[in-house]
Design a protein around this nucleic acid. Structure first.
Length: 709
DNA sequence: AATATCCGTATTTTT
DNA sequence: TACGGATATT
């Protein structure tokens, strides 16, 4: 019998599931589906009939219960393909399905439909989208693409009117997404979240209309569309009845982080039988910025008055000292429902609060501690460093590299956002959807001597963006569009490689296509980028990844909906059995756990982020964020904060201020053992003398700066 | 019409 | 820094 190692639960690797899905299904032991569950968990697993709501605090075995419930359904003979499991991330879906497989003898657990709302929406729209007027070969815009399209229509709309100061494309995209996901009027969105844009309400409406219209003519959907069209599909007389019959059971994880549209989808999809399970914890709602609303969970009885509610509050993850700190923290929230997690794990190690002289000392302490814990038998893979924003780990990453401590970072900049990756993806997208104006613009703009005006001319020539019938790619390949002299050889090459991919036949898969398209990149990159060799090497990496997908469409979709989490430098992902430390934003750490967790940069202004303070629920959400961070820890929790805070308003600006401890930690200090680092941390001096402690001048300067601010 | 250059300013979390 | 926007140059 194969026991699922703890590592597979906490581990971030995306390759683990293959191992366990296949092996666990051969297990001959008695079905452990119900084994080891507490009475409430068991009740949740076996519940039938009315809608089920599981209110599950952090570490209370939520994943386990949900997985057992699915396994139980399979044991009862439910067809796995008729179970839909909606999770918050792809990672969570994978883990859940692995667990289902481990908990049942049914070999076909992996056929359960599992994924994010966006991924499942995409899947259903590929099949049924034509019923609501969608081209089956639509491409999906990521956030950057959506911003580019907004920039395009913005310039077209704003030209007409007096060019007063107008919100930037980024801001417009954010407003739009909030409008769509929260399903409230533009005036309300502007009043609540973007008051400085209120005077432009009318012009914004024009931009939004133009944006929507353009998306339709170029056959693209953005993230929000995947949800909107899915809901529209359920509501349509043609597809609705079929969709509602498609699944026998629908289960939704992390329900507290769903938005209005997602809640609509669930509620309407499960009619009329309402075989639905939602799981959530209002104390862990951290996606308000994305228009998620805890009201979906708190007011669940409005949706299903007869819902059965099961509350899980026994924590199996953390020791009591850690839970005491977390419980105290949550009590500081005026809005949180009273919640007291308890545990039978009476550990004696109290969380540690570490005041560091400065950021250098913090990095030094963390690295020391990580190594010390490792000596005590806590593997690097059982340790994580968490932070509020991605760049908070910059300094620490240098220190870890210097000391040869391997790590993997989650959250922050995505591989997909690198310019050269977008270049290649643009080429693939043209092949997939020849109407994709954003992809065309990107590719044409990379040619020598071709700017916005020429791009526009070419697009009009081949009929992209204007809704012309026929195939723009065929017209482009036919070659009757003229381009400036400087671009001639590049254009010829572009025609060649695209033509080869179109006519390549069935053996010419994504990987082969990328390898062919690469020769165009080879020609263009040296002029575009200073480090074109490194960038070309990335494309090879991409080709390998693409080879693992069944086709071009699946590859493109998975890049947008489930992008690689780390920037792809030459190193490549660490090997499965390699030891590595996890660095992660708190958001990306959701649902995961480690034996030792260190939250760094816990200074006020970072946690809570001072940027969140404008939002109505902002401060409270920041508190929940810290709560999520602390409750990731099983045995050891550390919180560190640098006393001296580097103010980097501008690059050259070398000032620093005295930071204050997070306002959330201050009132619960008694739950921590406090220590302070020396200003010159051990191990730092010989390697990095420039990181030595503050001089007297620094001290005086920063004191003065502090008085001025 | 494209590109080079300079200036000012932003600042987070992710499907 | 790094990116967008405006202005100057090719």
């Amino acid at each position: 019998m194969l026991r699922l190692p703890v590592r597979a639960v906490a581990g971030a690797s995306t390759t683990i599931e293959h191992v366990f899905v296949s092996e666990s299904s051969t297990s001959a032991e008695v079905s452990p589906t119900l084994e080891g569950l507490n009475p409430r968990q068991r009740a949740a697993v076996e519940h039938t009939g009315s809608p089920l709501v599981i209110v599950a605090g952090a570490g209370t075995g939520k994943t386990r219960t949900l997985a057992a419930r699915v396994a139980h359904m399979l044991d009862q003979g439910v067809d796995p393909e008729r179970i839909l499991l909606l999770t918050f991330s792809r990672r969570a879906a994978r883990e859940m399905i692995v667990r289902v497989g481990a908990a049942t003898d049914r070999r076909d657990a992996s056929r359960v439909w599992g994924g994010t709302f966006h991924a499942i929406g995409n899947r259903l729209l590929r099949v049924h989208g034509e019923l609501v007027g969608l081209s089956p070969s639509f491409t999906v815009l990521d956030q950057g693409d959506a911003r580019d399209l907004f920039a395009l229509v913005r310039s077209e709309c704003v030209n007409g009117m007096g060019a007063r100061r107008f919100p930037r494309a980024d801001t417009i995209a954010t407003i739009y997404s909030r409008l769509v996901n929260a399903q409230i009027s533009l005036d309300d969105v502007l009043a609540d979240h973007f008051p400085w844009c209120a005077e432009h309400a009318d012009a914004l409406k024009d931009v939004f209309r133009a944006y929507t219209a353009r998306k339709r003519t170029v056959h693209v959907l953005d993230y929000d569309d995947l949800l909107l069209f899915w809901r529209a599909l359920i509501r349509s007389p043609e597809a609705g009845p079929r969709l509602r019959k498609r699944f026998d059971h629908v289960l939704v994880d992390e329900y507290q982080d769903t938005n209005r549209v997602q809640a609509d989808i669930v509620a309407e999809l499960v009619e009329p039988e309402r075989h639905v399970t939602v799981v959530g914890d209002d104390a862990q709602a951290i996606y308000g910025f994305r228009a998620a609303t805890v009201d979906n969970l708190r007011n669940i009885s409005n949706t299903w008055p007869d819902a059965t509610i099961v509350t899980l509050d026994q924590n199996y993850r953390s020791t009591t000292p850690i839970l005491s700190a977390a419980n105290d923290l949550l009590r500081l929230s005026p809005k949180a429902l009273p919640k007291e997690l308890w545990s039978e794990r009476h550990g004696s190690t109290v969380p540690m609060l570490v005041a560091c002289a400065d950021e250098g000392a913090q990095s030094g302490w963390v690295a020391d501690r990580v190594l010390a814990m490792r000596e005590q038998g806590v593997d690097l893979r059982d340790q994580a460093i968490l932070f509020r924003t991605s760049h908070h780990s910059d300094h620490l990453e240098l220190e870890l590299t210097r000391r040869d401590i391997p790590y993997v970072k989650f959250g922050g900049l995505k591989f997909l956002e690198a310019a050269h990756v977008k270049d290649l993806i643009g080429l693939l997208r043209i092949l997939e959807n020849p109407h994709d104006e954003i992809a065309w613009s990107r590719v044409l703009g990379s040619l020598e001597g071709v700017g916005p005006a020429t791009t526009r001319r070419v697009l009009d020539g081949v009929g992209v963006g204007s809704g012309q019938p026929g195939d723009p790619l065929a017209r482009f390949l036919a070659g009757d569009v003229k381009l400036p002299g400087g671009a001639e050889t590049d254009v010829a090459l572009l025609r060649d490689v695209l033509g080869d991919c179109v006519g390549g036949g069935p053996d010419f898969g994504v990987r082969a296509q990328i390898e062919r398209l690469r020769s165009f990149c080879e020609a263009v990159f040296p002029r575009r980028y200073s480090n074109s060799d490194a960038r070309l090497a990335d494309l090879d990496q991409l080709a390998v990844t693409a080879g693992g997908h069944p086709g071009r469409e699946q590859f493109l979709t998975s890049l947008v909906l489930d992008p690689p989490e780390r920037t792809g430098d030459f190193a490549g992902p660490p090997h499965l059995d390699d030891e590595y430390l996890t660095l992660s934003t708190i958001h990306s750490a959701k649902g995961l756990e480690w034996r030792a967790v260190t939250v760094i940069h816990a200074a006020d202004g970072n946690i809570p982020s001072d940027m969140a303070l404008n939002e109505p629920d902002g401060l409270d959400e920041e508190l929940r964020l810290l709560y999520v961070a602390l409750t990731r820890a099983k045995d050891y929790a550390h919180v560190t904060w640098p006393l001296r805070f580097h103010v980097r308003r501008f690059a050259r600006d070398d000032r620093h201020l005295y930071a204050q401890l997070s306002r959330f930690i201050e009132p619960i200090r008694k739950r921590f053992d406090e220590i302070a680092t020396q200003s010159e941390p051990i191990g730092m001096v010989e390697h990095a003398p420039q990181l030595a402690g503050p001089t007297l001048t620094d001290e005086v300067d920063s004191l003065l700066d502090g008085l001025l601010s």
